[in-house]
Each structure stands twice: as structure tokens, then as C-alpha cells.
Design a binder for these strands. Sequence first.
DNA 1: CATTAACCACACTTATGAACAGTAGTTTGA
DNA 2: TCAAACTACTGTTCATAAGTGTGGTTAATG
Lengths: 151, 151
Amino acid sequence: MLRPSKKILFAIEAVLDIAYHAGGEPVQSREITRRQAIPRRYLEQTLQHLVRSGILTGVRGPRGGYRLARERRRISVGEIVRIVRALEVGEESPEELPSSELGKQVIRPMWGELQEEIMNRLDSITIDDLCMKAHQSGIVSEVMQKMDFTI
Amino acid sequence: MLRPSKKILFAIEAVLDIAYHAGGEPVQSREITRRQAIPRRYLEQTLQHLVRSGILTGVRGPRGGYRLARERRRISVGEIVRIVRALEVGEESPEELPSSELGKQVIRPMWGELQEEIMNRLDSITIDDLCMKAHQSGIVSEVMQKMDFTI
DNA sequence: CATTAACCACACTTATGAACAGTAGTTTGA
DNA sequence: TCAAACTACTGTTCATAAGTGTGGTTAATG
């Protein structure tokens, strides 16, 4: 019911993967799909939206790939969710499904508020936070060259 | 993505409808479906689960219907959500979709925590709260006989 | 005792949307 | 010139939500 779609999960995984495994080189989409077991052509749609939305930058050509468009601490999970969700639905919902007064005036607003709270929560979580968690969990980055905690 | 299913929405609407329009008489399912525009046979499945789960009590026979099994302030939205969700999925998900380390150890736990926060929030909202909101919104109860705010 | 409405169960259909694959390119950098 | 990102639009598959159908049983009421 309120679990996120795979598309959203994939998007977050991908961004986190790029953040976590980035060395000097950009991360190629096939590396991501290899590590995260995400179908390639499916993921790329999303990646390219993330590029257009200013989360990632794409580097073309051989040895190309993706990197973050900003510092990790300046990218929030909420932002990614918003972007992917906007792309999931076509124009979304003027879906005024006919409802009663109780629905319109009481229940709908309640969900609206809840939704906002959730998004606020997600906005407060940054990719940097997740990277640190990953590090604490002992997940090894495939590239440990000249990251912020330099040698 | 994180909007609730219609079934859940219907269930909450129904319980609220019963709470709000209840006089001395129990509320019949056809009254609910009339006011809330919910298909009758569809709703009844849910109503009966709510009865079995101790949210509602059913009264049979002519002039029968449904009433709340407890005071309004002792029924939370979260409880309703849990009940209906349990019925939506058959056995639910040992769905261990294969995922990467990052997914399993970082992203999954994050959603888990969020989910808990959401449910805590929903547990804190009672049917009584919603009734008061409805009252404040100027929605007229179809029965205003011997409610708490007596004449 | 007939009527009314809740209760029960199961199976079936349909609509919707997520999850992907296909094709056919253009653009850019090594 | 090759490898990769980019663009875009289309089509297919599959799962799940949403809703119907049928055929009952049980318990109050008048």
C-alpha cells in the first residue's frame, strides 16, 4: 500500500551507487545495473530524467558515465522521489474521484498532511547520510581512491 | 506511489460515516454506499472484516446495520489501515526481491523506519478526531438526535 | 412465518499501472 | 571511428486492484 514503486527504489539505489562507488571516473550505467541487478534499459530512462532534473550529470563517450551534479550532502532522497514520481504519472491526478463531503473535507486533507510530513522526512535524508550508513555497515566501495576522506 | 488503496480509503470513510451519522439506530450498508458512492457488494467485504476485527458490530434483521464496537476515541485510523492491509495481501511478502548490499542494508531499513513513523502517526489519529473535524467543517450529520452535544 | 438485512464464501472478470523490451536513431569525447 | 550517453516513442507482459456474480445461512422484527 505505501511501499514505494520499484522505479523509485531503483532511482535511489542508482544515485546512491553512483555516490558511493564514484572515484575520479564517472560511473557507467552497466556497472550500476551489474551491482544492483536492475534491468539496463529500464534504469536508463530514469537516469536520464535525473540528469535533466539536475541530480546527475552525464558524461558521454568512452569512459563516460554518470556522476552527481552536486555534493552528496546537497541531494536529498525527497528530491529524487519527487522527480521520479512526476515521471511515473502522466500529468497525474486531476483525478477527482467523486467522493462524499466526509471524504473531501476530512479524509483527503488528512492524507494530504501525512504526505507532506513524509516528504519533509525524506527531504531531511541526504545521499551523504546514506553513504555514511553504508560505510558503517561495512559495505566496501569499489573505488576508494581520492574520496573526501582522502588518504 | 504512496497514496492508499481505495479499499483503505473506503474503509476509513465507512467507519467515519457510521460514527458520524449514527443516532440510536445502527447504520445500514446501503446508507453508507449511498452517501459515499461506494459499490455495495465491494464495501461489504470490508465491513465484515471490520466486524470480525472488533472495530464494528453488526446488527441483523430489519432496521439492522452497523455500529462502532467501541467509543470513537478508542478507534484509530492506523488500526483500520492495518486490518484492511492484512486482508489485501494473501500472506504478503516473503518477497525477498534480490537486491544489492546497498539496497538491503541502507535503503530497505530507511523505508522501514519511515513506515513505522507513518503508522505511529496514523495510530495517533482517532475517529473522534475526524468527527470533530467534520463538525468544524460544517458537515451536517443526518442524525442529530441524542449525540454527545445534546440539544 | 415472511421479510429484512447482516453474514459467509468463493470464483470470476475487468481495469489499471508497473515493469520491462524494442527500435531507431543523435551527440559527444577519447 | 568507436563507445558511450542521450532522445523518443512504441509495444508487451504481468501483477494487482477493483468490482461482479451467484447462492446461499442466520438472526431480529412485525
